[in-house]
Design a protein around this nucleic acid. Structure first.
Lengths: 185, 185
DNA sequence: TAATTGTTTCAGATAATATTGAAAAGACAG
DNA sequence: CTGTCTTTTCAATATTATCTGAAACAATTA
């Protein structure tokens, strides 16, 4: 049989299985928040789908449950793999590829922190250094230079904090958070 | 004279003043990173413009230096005020409104943390609670329930950490980061 | 009050992004 | 190698987000 195609291939199997309302709700909300994470809605929804799925999920599942095309599913699954948020697995006796979500929430968080540092903090630090080289030394850019320096220092601190948080891990952090909140009364 | 209008009103004064290359570079980069912060490029560029400007900036300045329309400038300035990242000021003897950027980088960071918590963490926590109420109790959703709970716990931890970081402030955190990096040797 | 200057709004235009689907490429079994 | 199944790619298209500009509105001055 040739690959099913057209009209979302959906008419064929939209009826087969359907998402529980509770899971659907979670997926939709996760998608709505995607804007704040610099990823697109579909990518977030796929991620959420894997997160709420007990079993590994294949491309057809994604297409069916989220009602998206094969190409769309394929491309977004790949992005998620690139981000390190999901991984490909193979099930013996089945030729299809399946995907699972790294289920450890803390690990997910670590991945995101690292990615964001690489994609945001590093580039802006480079830019700041270059701006400082380029900027003149006249009196009237003194404020500007000063602010750039503060920003640089701050971003370094952020980097250190990320390291620290990752190093301590959730248990230690929970302990600290608890202690502090007690002290605060 | 009636308000200048049309063709970006720019032909009239694009020549008057121009941005130093160094500042322009910073602004552009800040804009490129906007995607990761859930705000649009122009909003980020305006913010960067205020950040690198020694003096207060008016709407006309923004239009001229970033080559955008009056409506665009007005709406994005308002959004920045809503976010709490910039503020309106008035200069005596001048009828125009001016804007300045909260220049303390740490305070900027605090504002963003709080906003993000309000816009992202709170809604997803609400949703998770609702999902847990809605979800069945059958065996096959046990994994799902478990994951939701872990996610909830994790988000609470994030909330506590935000509080902690804000409470400690940059100096204390710098100290801690330094100590830890020494220990790690 | 009317004239002047500055600000906001929003329908329509434009630009940027995401999505589809069919063809091409890849993977495997026999 | 050939046939079957699966995944990837990408030009065309659809959708969404953003921007413009002129009109409406607001504030100030004379």
């Amino acid at each position: 049989m040739a690959a099913k195609t057209g009209v979302l291939e959906g008419a064929t199997f939209a009826k087969l299985e359907t998402l529980e309302p509770s899971k659907l709700l979670f997926i939709r909300r996760w998608g709505e928040l995607s804007g704040y994470w610099g990823i697109n809605r579909t990518m977030a929804e796929i991620h959420a789908l894997l997160f709420v799925s007990t079993d590994p999920v294949c491309t057809d599942d994604v297409m069916e449950k989220l009602l998206i095309s094969r190409g769309n599913a394929s491309m977004n699954l790949r992005s998620l793999v690139d981000w390190g948020l999901i991984e490909r697995i193979h099930i013996r006796g089945d030729r299809k590829e399946y995907f699972i979500c790294r289920s450890d929430v803390w690990q997910m968080f670590e991945t995101i922190l690292q990615q964001r540092r690489r994609r945001e903090v590093e580039p802006i630090l480079e830019t700041i250094d270059r701006c400082l080289e380029t900027a003149g030394n006249e009196k009237d850019v003194e404020v500007y230079r000063q602010r750039l320096k503060e920003m640089r220092e701050f971003l370094h601190l952020v980097g250190s904090l990320v390291d620290l948080v990752v190093k301590l891990g959730p248990d230690a952090l929970n302990g600290i958070a608890l202690t502090m909140s007690k002290m605060a009364g």
